[in-house]
Design a protein around this nucleic acid. Structure first.
Lengths: 153, 153
DNA sequence: ACAAATAATCAAGCTCCTTGACCAATTAGA
DNA sequence: TCTAATTGGTCAAGGAGCTTGATTATTTGT
């Protein structure tokens, strides 16, 4: 006989992570929107945050973000169309493309960082510094950054 | 003078939550797929998990999931079309719809719970019980469950 | 020189969620 | 009681953030 009782397993890690992440994203998007930067969504933000002073190769973004090359392609396409980033061939290897922020992109990235810090500061306050840091630490363990080839020598 | 230095604020809460949540979701979908339940995605899972023995009103799902009524509508539509849930009018109030799991839905929900517990157990092992519980607790603080009207009397 | 690997691109589509407009049933109030 | 306002659900359209599959350059290894 099959047990017809329903399971109702609600309070698991995935659910909690998803809820918290969705909430954070909504908060970010809302604050960016309030500053007239509605185009600067959380998804784009995480890509933009990975672009350094000198620019990065598109393939490096794929690696760091943990997405497919096509996903990165698409985000970069959009950002390039809106003149937030530029895409030029890598002189050292013409297959590659170097992604760089435009001045418009740089200015917006500063605002984004301010907003990120605002949200984080509010949560740090709510949780207390110790719990906040413990959370960050545990999340880093759960989903570590990609090892860059340069760092793993 | 505008500081042209690039920000590169990568390691913030939103990024970590998003990464961890995405990873969890991928793990769940992959395991469900391996068991021949590819249709049972994480998004649908979180709705199904909220359906009790007696069924729930669609409006209750909206409240518990923290989504719009249209989002819930759509998920329920899909699940109903695939005969995972049924939708019938609430006899106590004909505006409402009572959502119930079909036997097919119940069987799949059991598998889903098994998979969720597998993943959580693996992470608990990686982090240690104390850190795992601390994480869950902090996430609950960060994104609490919706208060049901019945519970807040 | 040629095969294999690497980097990007083009095309299509899926999941999860949104806003806007609307109708039907119930409840509260004049 | 008739009449708003409210609540619950539905229809339509679309945006954000990803995926897989197939194809084209360029470079590297032998």
């Amino acid at each position: 006989m099959v047990d017809e009782k329903l399971p109702e397993l609600i309070d698991h890690l995935g659910w909690r992570l998803w809820r918290a992440a969705r909430l954070w994203k909504a908060e970010f998007d809302s604050r960016m929107n309030a500053r007239g930067l509605a185009w600067y969504t959380e998804g784009r933000a995480s890509l933009i945050a990975q672009i350094g002073d000198a620019g990065v190769r598109q393939s490096a973004l794929v690696h760091r973000l943990g997405l497919t090359k096509q996903a990165v392609q698409q985000i970069v396409d959009e950002l390039a169309a809106e003149e937030i980033v530029t895409r030029r061939p890598d002189p050292a290897d013409n297959r590659g493309r170097i992604i760089t922020l435009t001045p418009k992109g740089i200015a917006a990235a500063h605002v984004a960082n301010e907003v990120k810090r605002e949200i984080d500061a509010a949560q740090r306050l709510r949780l207390g510094a110790a719990r906040f840091e413990a959370l960050m630490d545990t999340l880093r363990t759960l989903a570590p950054d990609a090892q860059t080839p340069e760092n793993s020598g």
